[in-house]
Nucleic acid binder design. Structure first.
Length: 936
RNA sequence: GGGGCGGUGGCGAAAUGGUAGACGCAGCGGACUUAAAAUCCGCCGGGGGUGACCCCGUGUGGGUUCGAAUCCCACCCGCCCUACCA
């Protein structure tokens, strides 16, 4: 394969000293590389391409060690691929829009643009020191108008495709300051405004969304992607596909309330309904008596953010609406409540509550005294395992009637109990057998009944009607349903008997009683469809992507609102809609664009009537969803990327970055690519074919690095002290790349000594004193084994073991140098190969030494050395001899000996014989070229 | 609560069914030096033995196997992500 840029060797640094001094050679080579265009990456149709991409940074200020940790191993692998003959694209850019720039503007009075571009300039020089093969001519910066021009263009394309829409969504709003607030501006438990301290409220505003849910099903398909299982699992969970049924409930007044359920087989156990507090029907159905309570609850729910609402261990709260619904399967009349554990954003914002088989509903029912009705038999028969058989008090056992129910009069009260097999049936039994009016509510298994004026909790499990609580005695403080239920809740027994979420045979479910659990869901769903009260349904946890941000420093949404024509997209010839720079940053939390008349006021593109622009900007995740395409041709003016570049380079072959982007960014960019495919822009389905996640470098204290902890490692200082190559090498050596770990300053000396040794052997004038053929063969073997090992390790991102293998080769070469018994040819091959193998890891020193050894520029365009299987093969191996699995001898034997021969040698060993003494050999296991295990 | 990752010398780590601790750091002994640093040579999991060797050892307890850090079951601990998704 042809390699570009092979030139005559020429001295880059005049008079370079004989010792390794990275501070002299590194800047010199950097200049030479740039001037010779070593890292220009252009289409070469006769070579296979490899698009290596590493996640682009946010220009936060300084390049920290985490950037080095993410980028330099990715760079080493890209360099390796280049030496393997691929035409490698390895670009870099900046994800430059975002909140920190705006915060800097507000707190320090620096314009976001100035802050951002100064940071980019600084980080670009810091990145240059890394010696990475970035092609800066392909740099893309998302806040450049020539970049966000196309971000806006994509917005319009998505709109045309029907994948963008406008809808009401709630934002945090401060009623005092009369402005929307970002999440970061809402403080404290009570969620008050950062500035004025007023509690914030949720306010509905028109915002733009992308229909990510349109691709939910396709996003679950990872076919052909070489991605970590972990990321795929996280995405699957994020998308959260559930199958079940949509069931139509009606209120007594006739309002339709559709609900989604994954458990249509539990429909007969629905004892109440719950609507999300913001459900549109709530105001219509609430009865006048309940209206005040409902209003109060809604107001309180509105003030809570979703995060607070979703804190799962919060106790359940809710309010009765006063309305009732009819269960379509059995016409039961069930109360309708509102509670914030039901989320408006999922399903239909309403649920049928089945407390016996849903833990949240169970908790809610206990708290508010709602009926609990098991309709699924426990698959494990646990209900029955609480049998009172033989322990039931005589009087009860004797009184059991044919249906397994007993009534005992005692001391003016009626005690009722059920045979254990009737436990699940208690409500029916009670309704059928107790006099109407003689009980108010049945709340337990067969062991718990509630009578008028006296709440009794009996424990018949222990063969006694022990009264656990008699509420009348506890009056007045605890005489309420909740107290009793909380007490019951503490008794695991009741919970076990009443609640489980397993599938099982249906009971007390009208015509479906007896339906086995494995087909129950399906049969009920089919029946619902027949009845016209429901249908099969799939629901996703994934929500549409809200892209509107009430912010300045982002790409403006290219929309003009006209009184007549509504939301009109800005015509292509007027793109980009540029951000005005003369804006004022007042700490209002409101986008300054809103107060910029020159920006805000614009004629309608259709009729020319004075109109207003959209002043919201786009979520920065939108900019980073398509950056891999912009790198191909960052200056291209006819579209987001030049088609001929796309044809050659796309898609990305290897993506590397942190696990923190497993869901958001990586789902968004997949969504984008699928939408682009449907727009006819690309012909593939997935943006990145392979993905690998690196770990994180922690501070020396094993904590996440942060300025406040004072444990931040500054790469620039390390480079000043040890040189770039040493820092790169150490980052790849000190931990497994996918795991990361705490930084350790002392350890960096190892890689530096290694490079000093490489320098010394590569500049040594080696003369063999006395050539030993066997020793020469040994070094040559080690060299070829190392070529194999380093290649394999780079393929699999095992940078640490690759560096270890290079150190081993260094050790072998230095031993040989001491002995001076290696042939000249083998020595030169070993040293040259060491440099070639090391080149992806330490680009500067290898370039320098390659030149000093008289080879043509550049080492980085040399082909990766080949290894010879014959040469790499071991001549002799250490045969391990075990007796009953314990090592008893080690023997050097020629490689490839027969099993019989190995067994013979093993048995002949003196120590082995001692262990075999007098015992009978039962079995001998021989693993070729490895070990012999003798079983006695 | 759910999902994931991990637990191996003084430390970072190798080894994914076959010699546990490759490679490196730190440490110890020696050489060089007036001395220190650097460099070079040697040792470096614990215990026993003059020695050949022996015993113990990969978070804990079981299991599978001729053989387990590695596979299976149960548990303990740490970290990360996620969280009322009906």
């Amino acid at each position: 394969m042809t390699q570009p840029e092979v030139r005559e060797s020429e001295a880059v640094v005049e008079q370079t000293p004989d010792e390794y001094q990275p501070e002299l050679i590194e800047p010199a080579w950097r200049e030479k590389w740039e001037e010779s265009g070593l890292y220009r990456q252009e289409i070469e149709r006769d070579r296979p391409k490899h698009y290596a991409l590493t996640m682009l940074p946010y220009p936060s200020g300084d390049l920290h060690i985490g950037h080095w940790y993410a980028m330099t191993p990715s760079d080493a692998r890209a360099r390796y691929m280049r030496m393997k003959g691929y035409n490698v694209l390895f670009p870099m850019g900046f994800d430059a829009f975002g909140l920190p720039a705006e915060n800097a503007a507000i707190s320090r009075g620096i314009h976001p643009k100035k802050w951002t571009y100064e940071n980019i300039a600084r980080m670009r020089t810091q990145m240059a020191r890394m010696g990475a093969m970035f092609d800066w001519e392909r740099e893309a910066v998302s806040s450049d108008p020539q970049y966000y021009h196309w971000t806006q263009w994509f917005f319009k394309k998505l709109l045309e495709q029907g994948l963008a829409y406008r809808a009401l969504a709630s934002v945090d709003f401060c009623p005092q300051c009369n402005t929307t607030l970002a999440r970061e501006q809402v403080w404290g438990e009570d969620r008050h405004c950062e500035r004025c301290g007023t509690p914030v409220i949720k306010k509905e505003m028109e915002q733009w969304f992308f229909k990510t849910t349109e691709y939910a099903e396709e996003l679950l398909d990872f076919e052909g992607l070489d991605w970590p299982e972990r990321v795929k699992t996280m995405q699957r969970n994020w998308i959260g596909r559930s199958t079940g049924a949509e069931v139509l409930f009606r209120t007594e007044a006739g309002h339709e309330i559709p609900v989604f359920t994954t458990r249509p087989d539990t429909l007969w156990g629905a004892t109440f309904m719950v609507l999300a507090p913001e459900h549109p029907l709530v105001d219509e159905i609430a009865t006048p008596e309940q209206q005040a309570a409902v209003d109060a609850y809604q107001l309180q729910a509105e003030r809570m953010s979703e995060i607070d609402r979703e804190a799962a261990d919060r106790p359940k709260t809710g309010v009765f609406t006063g309305a009732y619904a009819i269960n379509p399967v059995n016409q039961e009349r069930i109360p309708i409540w509102i509670a914030d554990y039901v989320l408006m954003a999922y399903g239909h914002g309403a649920i049928m509550a089945v407390p016996a088989h849903d833990e949240r509903d169970f908790e809610f029912a206990l708290k508010f005294g709602l009926s609990i009705l098991p309709v699924i038999e426990r698959p494990d028969g646990l209900t029955k395992s609480y049998a009172m058989k033989g322990t039931m008090k005589e009087g009860f056992a004797a009184a059991l009637d044919a249906e397994g129910i007993a009534y005992v009069e005692e001391g003016g009260s009626t005690y009722v109990t059920l045979a254990p097999e009737r436990v699940a049936d208690y409500v029916r039994v009670a309704q059928a057998h107790l006099q109407p009016g003689s009980w108010t509510e049945v709340v337990g298994t067969g062991w718990t009944f509630v009578f008028p004026d006296e709440w009794l909790v009996l424990d018949s499990l222990k063969n006694e009607r022990r009264i656990l609580a008699r509420c009348r005695e506890l009056e007045p403080a605890v005489r309420d349903y909740q107290t009793v239920m909380e007490m019951l809740w503490g008794l695991d027994f009741y919970r076990d008997a009443l609640y489980h979420s397993d599938y099982g045979t249906m009971i007390f479910s009208g015509p479906f009683s007896g339906t086995p659990g494995d087909v129950a869901k399906e049969r009920v769903t089919a029946w619902l469809a027949e009845q016209g009260t429901g249908r099969r349904a799939v629901n996703y946890r994934l929500r549409d992507w809200l892209i509107s941000r009430q912010r300045y420093w982002g790409a403006p949404i290219p929309i003009i609102y006209c009184d007549v024509h509504g939301a009109v997209p800005v015509p292509n010839e007027d793109l980009p809609v540029t951000l005005p720079e003369d804006v004022e940053f007042m700490p209002t939390g409101e986008s300054p664009l809103k107060f910029h008349a020159g920006f805000r006021e614009a004629p309608c593109p259709i009729c020319g009537r004075p109109s207003v622009r959209e002043t919201d900007t786009m979520d920065t995740f939108m900019c980073s969803s398509w950056y891999q395409y912009r790198y191909l041709s960052p200056g291209y003016e006819e579209g987001p990327f030049a088609p001929e570049e796309g044809d050659y380079w796309l898609p990305v072959d290897q993506y590397t970055g942190g696990i923190e982007h497993a869901t958001m960014h990586l789902i968004y960019t997949r969504f984008f690519t699928k939408a682009m495919r449907d727009m006819g822009l690309v012909e593939f389905d997935e943006p990145m074919l392979a993905l690998y996640n690196q770990g994180m470098v922690l501070g020396e204290d094993n904590e996440k690095m942060s300025k406040s902890r004072g444990n931040v490692v500054a790469p620039d200082e390390l480079v000043d002290q040890y040189g770039t190559d040493t820092v790169r090498l150490y980052l790849m050596f000190f931990a497994r790349w996918d795991q990361g770990g705490p930084w350790n300053y002392a350890g960096i000396k190892g890689p530096r000594r290694f490079l000093d040794d490489v320098w010394s052997v590569a500049t040594a004038d080696y003369q063999p004193a006395d050539v030993d053929e066997a020793a020469s063969r040994d070094l040559r073997r080690k060299t070829h084994q190392t070529i194999r090992k380093v290649g394999e390790d780079l393929e699999s991102f095992s940078f640490n073991t690759a560096v270890a293998a290079l150190m081993e080769l260094r050790n072998a070469i230095m031993d040989a140098q001491r002995e001076q018994n290696i042939s000249q040819v083998v020595w030169e091959e070993a040293v040259d190969d060491l440099l070639l193998l090391l080149a992806p890891f330490a680009p500067y020193i290898t370039e320098e030494l390659w030149q000093r050894r008289g080879h043509p520029y550049s080492i980085h365009t040399q082909p990766w050395p080949d290894w010879d299987e014959e040469v790499a093969r071991e001549e002799s191996i250490t045969l391990i001899v075990q007796v009953n699995g314990k090592v008893r001898a080690k023997v050097d034997v020629p490689a490839g000996i027969s099993n019989e021969e190995a067994e013979r040698i093993a048995l002949a060993e003196e120590n082995v014989q001692r262990w075999l003494d007098g015992k009978k050999v039962r079995k001998v296991i021989v693993v070729p070229d490895r070990l012999v295990n003798i079983v006695v």
